[in-house]
């Protein structure tokens, strides 16, 4: 069972709350580098947030903290009202499966699985879904991203844009509360990137989830509800 505890101050519609959050990376020689300090952030369902900053500013590391892949170095973090600051790895894995969806920069689809199987991958872990439920959910997501007929194909037979849409379908198939995207258009040309982002935003809103996108692209950041700028160590949150 989860070792997380419910946050008494959790407000309605709040998907993620960070209080005085610090993010640092530890080095093998025992030293550490602080990347983010004192970040206060509230993410509402249906909202979209861009995380921007220069290279090496800690955007991806922050995303890994928000994605429960590493613990924060300071402060408190709540997701869906649960204190998720310090979790056992197996509990974190369960919460990632249940509450979060991920879209990676280079799609990260499993090459030897079909499109259908890739989208169904999150359903292989965590809460058990019956075979009809799996089929229904996967087909719904593939339909939403316009790839219903592509279920039997292998990822390598798809274009970059199509692969990223498959990744979006995979991120949403469990019905997550929060979708975390790391440079989702980084490997795509501008037109395809715009189309994929449109899909991602629409699908996320339709799923009632919140979206956090790490990006270098100012235009993309501007198209989202707000941005978190990590250019200085003390992150600035702007609407």
């Amino acid at each position: 069972m989860s070792s997380s505890t419910a946050r008494s101050a959790s407000g309605p519609g709040e998907v993620l709350v960070a209080e005085d959050l610090g993010v640092s990376i530890d080095h093998r020689n025992g030293s550490s580098t602080r990347l983010v300090e004192g970040l206060d952030l509230v993410i509402q369902s249906g909202s979209s947030t861009a995380v921007v900053g220069r290279s090496g500013s800690g955007k991806t590391t922050l995303l890994s903290v928000l994605g429960l892949m590493r613990p924060p170095s300071a402060g408190r973090l709540y997701i869906a009202g649960r204190d998720v600051g310090t979790l056992r790895p197996s509990v974190a894995a369960g919460l990632r499966n249940e509450l979060l969806g991920f879209v990676f920069q280079n799609y990260s689809l499993v090459e030897h699985l079909s499109v259908f199987e890739n989208v169904a991958l999150p359903l292989m872990y965590g809460r058990r879904a019956t075979r009809p439920q799996v089929r229904e959910r996967v087909e719904r997501q593939l339909t939403a991203v316009g790839l219903r007929e592509f279920g039997r194909r292998r990822p390598r037979s798809l274009s970059g844009g199509e692969q990223q849409r498959v990744a979006i379908a995979r991120a949403l198939v469990r019905g997550p509360r929060l979708v975390l995207a790391d440079e989702p258009t980084g490997a795509l040309d501008t037109a395809t990137g715009t189309s994929v982002m449109k899909h991602l935003q629409e699908a996320t809103v339709e799923a009632g989830a919140a979206l956090i996108v790490v990006t270098h692209d100012d235009a993309l950041a501007d198209s989202l509800h707000r941005r978190v700028d990590l250019s200085s160590r003390e992150a600035a949150v702007a609407l």
Binding site: S90, A93, R96, M124
Partner: peptide, 10 residues
């Protein structure tokens, strides 16, 4: 990636 989307170590 499997770990990220919910697979535990075991």
């Amino acid at each position: 990636v499997r770990r990220a989307i919910g697979a535990r170590r075991r």
